[in-house]
Design a protein around this nucleic acid. Structure first.
Lengths: 389, 389
DNA sequence: AATTAGTTTATCGCATAAACAAACTAATTG
DNA sequence: CAATTAGTTTGTTTATGCGATAAACTAATT
């Protein structure tokens, strides 16, 4: 059983100090003590350890307010590099970040020709990771780890992909494959979970203890942040809300049921709407977004259609979770207010809580980088633990 | 900020010891040490404190397995009494429990004639609490506190009822009213939250870290247990899922929208179905349940109808929360398998996770007492903290 | 004699308060 | 204006208290 002792006390306080430096840098020891409530001497001792671990740096002095000048502390961005992978259905995005989550290199490869074998795709992934590593800068610790966001069902603890239907993957031990190849720690998580963590650490969710990240792309999934941490549920399947019933006898879904949310609010729904309304061209989602922004009528109405139904599902989730904030991510929100206005209108109308206060609904701040940055944050969070707002 | 120190360490470990005694009584110091991983001397010291606080008792010795006999420890059930109130729409149920959550006295008063004023109902409540107190047994600490479960929106921290439309209440400071009258600590929570806590402490949810308690009665609400604790959301409105959209252009709801779950799965829906199918009698929910169990055809089909739609919403919630367990409480599950069979069938069909493993869906173990026992558990949990499974 | 239960004692690690040293600003003084 | 002084802020050092622990102990039982 998880009992408490002094080791735990120190761990907690050290994480609090590190997170405080992370969030408020540059900051002095005295300010940390004031902000956290920890004693000055405690802060000094913990900061000393962080300095010898090279996670933190002293960077000059701040302005004096009538006394000794404070010593500015900041995190050591260059202590190591992290690789974050967004494993898309028809692309792979690889980013290299420093320890502050700042992107220092990135490359996206498109896989337009559907690969038949999982083996080929994994080979592509490995080649891309190799190239990313070769572009790393010189740091104290080198590559700290690799995080991978996957569109499918994942066993997070074991780094196992149970099922990724859009990739045609079943039971792939991705973590051990990549760990063996590159010899650094690897973390695998669901694409929506990675997006949520990305927004929590570096995006629109920084200051929210409780929020939902809705990944609206090929399908729909949710990453749930509760109490500043990702909530995975009892078996890691929390947030699999693509097949939430919103219309009892509605559109038939590939899952065998009818009226699944995904059939009304994903790229699938968008393209279906487009086809039903004259447009027969073979377009990518980015084409439709560009057209909508350029003012094309059918494209705009398609986004309004999808936005409305997104709003309905979002309202359902707000009623269930009562979050501070909902962040809409992945491809669809790239259409901007064309989608978001309709979404907000419908969500507000159907949201029980909106009688008492309004819930903020924002588009992703990290846009197409959300998943990859979140994957990198998976690695960082191992050292930082969970950020406290 | 919530930093860690030795006080925290002790609190945590003391709660672990108390909870272990609570769950495994009778148990010896040595067994506690083995089970928790705490050192023998630590356990002894903490048990000593619990003994002087009279929360725990030494009760004889256990069997020796070739050595000194262990001293059995148990909680002191008689340390004090707790009052739990289920404030129904047309009844008030008051129970008196001992410190082990065992009901030692109870009384239910029915309020068939609708009260016009909140004042009258509060007077009735106070009279009933007074009568309950008069029936308390002699204990060390007397009445430890009063817990109240309310069908409405509650501010838990302030003990404020924001809105209980079915009672005609708005902004009632129930905690301070009752605290001033009786001079003991009072805890107010939503009826579904209370039910969830009741099932967690004393019912079907004892061994589950994550579960949902669905209160299906006049309306529908959910109590959400995450990580052994009640999840209230950012503003205390989590679980307000009665107005989840399940049918885009479905039945109009009093809330102004269409297709709300509550319109398909509550007593409201049951009675609507009954009226639509010949039955014009003026029946209570208990009449319909009795008739269904006795084999009345319309009543049975009414429960099957409601069960199906309950299952759809339950599947939605399972997809979102991925709990270990779902408990169905309040009045409807009193119909037993007539309701539950249909519910389970539909939930399984629409539940994404059921492809990977099945989620248990059980009727409440505390039945009509769930809310009142949960209200009492609100008080107990202040001393025990959250139980660890 | 061996084993198990529970207590006592000495020790270690951590946070903390209080005392201290260092570094700086601002007001005062001749 | 330069020198002095008071006061403030930053950060370190030192002594203390508290909690968990291991080891040595007593107690009770087969």
């Amino acid at each position: 059983m998880k009992t408490a002792d002094q080791v735990l006390v120190k761990q907690i306080n050290k994480m609090i100090v590190l997170n405080t430096i992370y969030k408020k840098r540059p900051i002095s020891r005295a300010e940390i003590a004031k902000f956290t409530g920890l004693n000055k001497s405690t802060v000094s001792a913990l900061v000393d350890e962080l300095l010898t671990e090279e996670l933190v740096l002293e960077m000059g002095t701040g302005e004096s307010q009538g006394g000794r000048k404070p010593v500015n502390l900041s995190i050591n961005k260059e202590v190591g590099n992290i690789i974050g992978i967004d494993l898309g259905v028809n692309y792979i995005l690889s980013i290299m970040t420093n320890f502050a989550g700042e992107i220092i290199w990135e490359k996206r490869i498109d896989l337009l020709h559907t690969h038949t074998s999982p083996g080929q795709r994994i080979a592509d992934l490995q080649t891309l990771i190799q190239e990313t590593i070769e572009n790393a800068s010189q740091t104290v610790r080198g590559i700290i780890g690799i995080g991978i966001g996957v569109p499918g069902i994942v066993n997070y603890e074991q780094g196992l992909i149970l099922s990724a239907p859009n990739l045609g993957w079943e039971n792939i031990e991705l973590r051990s494959i990549i760990e063996q190849k590159f010899g650094v720690p690897v973390f695998i998580d669901n694409e929506a979970n990675a997006g949520a963590i990305g927004e929590k650490w570096f995006g629109a969710g920084k200051r929210a203890d409780e929020f939902l990240y809705i990944s609206a792309g090929t399908g729909i999934g949710a990453g749930i942040i509760i109490n500043n941490e990702l909530y995975r549920g009892s078996r890691g399947l929390a947030g699999e809300i693509g097949h939430m019933t919103v219309s009892l006898d509605g559109v038939p879904c590939s899952c065998g049921n009818t009226g699944c949310w995904e059939e009304y609010s994903s790229e699938k729904a968008l393209f279906r709407y487009m086809k039903e309304h004259i447009c027969v061209e073979d377009l990518t989602i980015f084409n439709v977004i560009d057209n909508a922004i350029a003012g094309d009528d059918v494209s705009r109405r398609a986004f309004e259609y999808v936005g409305k139904y997104l709003g309905i599902g979002v309202a359902n989730l707000i009623n269930a979770f009562n979050p501070q904030l909902v962040i809409i991510g992945n491809s669809l929100p790239l259409a901007g207010d064309i989608l978001m206005d309709e979404l907000r209108k419908e969500a507000e109308k159907r949201c029980f809580a909106s009688k008492y206060f309004s819930v903020k609904i924002l588009p992703s701040q990290l846009n197409i980088h959300a998943c990859a940055i979140g994957a990198a944050a998976l690695v960082i969070s191992r050292l930082y633990a969970s950020p406290v707002s």
